[in-house]
């Protein structure tokens, strides 16, 4: 069962930028692309924990600020030669507000516990 909760307005995130949402199991990065699509991924790079929300957003991907691994927003997977992936969470935009699936976030806390 999905359970959508409001986390804020889309315009609080710059185009090709990101903000984070704090959860009990660490931060989730909310990205907004040039084309106003919104995605939510774990904020911790699997390489050495870099904050993906501080990376450069291009197309539907972000480059980690620490050592330039690139992650695809649709799959959470690292593209190119590096291997690794972060979790992706369902988000929607309704009337300019961003909604995230709380059920999935809780499942994540369960995993982290």
């Amino acid at each position: 069962m999905s359970e959508w909760i409001d986390i804020g307005e889309m315009d609080a995130i710059p185009r090709r930028g990101a903000r984070v949402v704090k959860t009990a199991a660490g931060c989730v990065a909310i990205f907004r692309t040039e084309a106003d699509e919104v995605f939510a991924l774990d904020d911790r790079c699997p390489h050495k924990g870099g904050p993906l929300s501080d990376g450069i957003v291009h197309g539907k991907s972000v480059t980690c600020p620490l050592h330039n691994w690139v992650f695809d927003f649709d799959t959470g997977r690292c593209t190119g030669p590096d291997e690794g992936a972060v979790a992706v969470y369902p988000v929607r935009v309704e009337n300019g507000r961003i909604l995230i699936d709380a059920a999935r976030l809780r499942a994540r806390i369960g995993e982290a516990a």
């Binding site: 986390i7 903000r19 984070v20 949402v21 704090k22 009990a24 709380a102 976030l105 809780r106």
Partner: peptide, 10 residues
Amino acid sequence: PLADLTLEAA
């Protein structure tokens, strides 16, 4: 942070 769900989601 854009939002703080530490309590909410738990």
